[in-house]
Each structure stands twice: as C-alpha cells, then as structure tokens.
Design a protein around this nucleic acid. Structure first.
Length: 211
DNA sequence: GACCAGGTCCTTG
DNA sequence: CAAGGACATGGT
C-alpha cells in the first residue's frame, strides 16, 4: 500500500531539504534571471554563467540592450550555451515583448502572477518551465518549476502524472512562499544531478518511498 | 567517439 | 494527442 502523491511529495521535500540545506540559486536582478532562464534551456548552468559574464562584459546583459543589438552579436556572446542561434532569437523576442508591453521590469513586478505567466508563455521560445523559472526566481512568485529531473524523480517514486499535473500537485502541497519553491526545486535538481542521470538511475534511493 | 545537459517548437502518424 | 526530430556547444 503506497502513500498518496501528496504525502510522497511532502516526504521527499523534507528528505532533500535535510540532505542539502539551503541552496542559493539564481540570485540577481530580474533581467539577468530572465536572460539566464532562456540560456539555460537544455544546457549546464556553468555554461550559462560564462555567457552571462560575456554579455555583461559587452554591456548586453539587459533587455534594453538585447532589443537594440543585432542577433549575430548576441549569438557570439552566448555560443557556449549551445542552440545559440535559436536562443538569440528567443532573447530578442522576450526583450522586445517586455519592452513594448511593460517598458521595464519594475512595471512587470507589479502585475499578478497569472497575468505575467500568460504574457511570458506568449513569447515564442518560452514554454511552461522557462516561464515558471522566471516567475519563481526573478519575480519571487510561489510558482513551482517542473523540469525533466522533477519528472524523472516523480516517476521513480510512483507519481506518473505529466508536467501540468505535477505542477498543480507541488503547488498544492507546498506553502505559498516563493523562497520555499525555489529551495525545493533546487534540491530536486541537485539530487537528480547526483543520482538520477540516465546512466545511474539505479543509484537513486527515493524509489524506496514507493512503498 | 558516444552520450548527455535545469526545453521548445514543428512535423507526423 | 503521442512520438520523433531539429536546434549546437562543451564536458565526461
């Protein structure tokens, strides 16, 4: 007889919190976090950091600058993150959209979460995960990020729902506090990087929670 | 050289 | 709707 999905999530949240303690991820100004959220698609964070450093060095780490400069220039600064042509387009789409709709991120910060999510999801190249990352880490909203790792871990413990359902579930279980959502997501990614890479999924011990 | 990384979009069956 | 491919560099 296995525990309910909610109970399992509450449990791994507690276990991973104890294991990893506090993780400070994605500190930084909203614009930088938004740019990073696109750059990190399907790549490692270390590469994103390099690209962000390069963008800053060239004075391009802002939505205003990205809107104005040509995409080839952006491509050359973000090459190390992979998919650099498509990501340069996505950055420009985001920048252009935000600049024309809101003017700047201070205005954005005043809008309700559901409104921002709709807006972000409307940008070509921003899907659910990237939108939620931005909401959670740039705008401090209690919006849970479901990524491939979360899906994998949930499957390990017998929760086989798809992404939208998982998001709903986590948001129901966790308190409505962005800092908590940030921590839990970070813990899941840390754990998954350590134990759930495809090659050594067998080392994951969370399956024992499966009853 | 093979495999994978904190996705998203488009095309097919 | 599910599944498969494209996008691309860099680390192990």
């Amino acid at each position: 007889m296995s525990a309910s999905s909610s109970a399992k999530i509450a449990l791994i949240t507690r276990v991973l919190g104890t294991k990893y303690g506090r993780i400070d991820w994605w500190r930084g100004p909203p614009e930088e976090v938004m740019i990073g959220a696109i750059l990190t698609q399907q790549t490692r964070w270390e590469h994103v950091n390099k690209a962000l450093t390069e963008l800053k060095r060239r004075g391009l780490c802002s939505l205003r600058a990205i809107d104005e400069v040509d995409s080839v220039t952006i491509e050359s600064a973000i090459r190390c993150t992979g998919f650099y042509r498509i990501k340069a387009q996505r950055l420009k789409s985001l920048a252009s959209h935000v600049n024309s709709v809101y003017g700047d991120t201070n205005i954005m910060a005043e809008k309700p979460t559901h409104h921002l999510r709709e807006c972000l999801m409307g940008v070509h190249g921003i899907g659910a995960e990237t939108a939620d990352s931005i909401l959670c880490y740039a705008f401090q909203r209690p919006c849970f990020v479901i990524d491939a790792y979360t899906e994998r871990i949930c499957r390990c413990i017998g929760i086989t729902e798809k992404r939208q359902a998982l998001k709903t579930l986590f948001e129901k279980v966790l308190p409505g506090d962005a800092a908590v959502h940030q921590q839990v997501h970070a813990h899941i990614v840390e754990y998954a990087k350590e134990f759930c890479a495809k090659k050594r999924c067998g080392e994951c011990t969370l399956a024992s929670l499966n009853g």
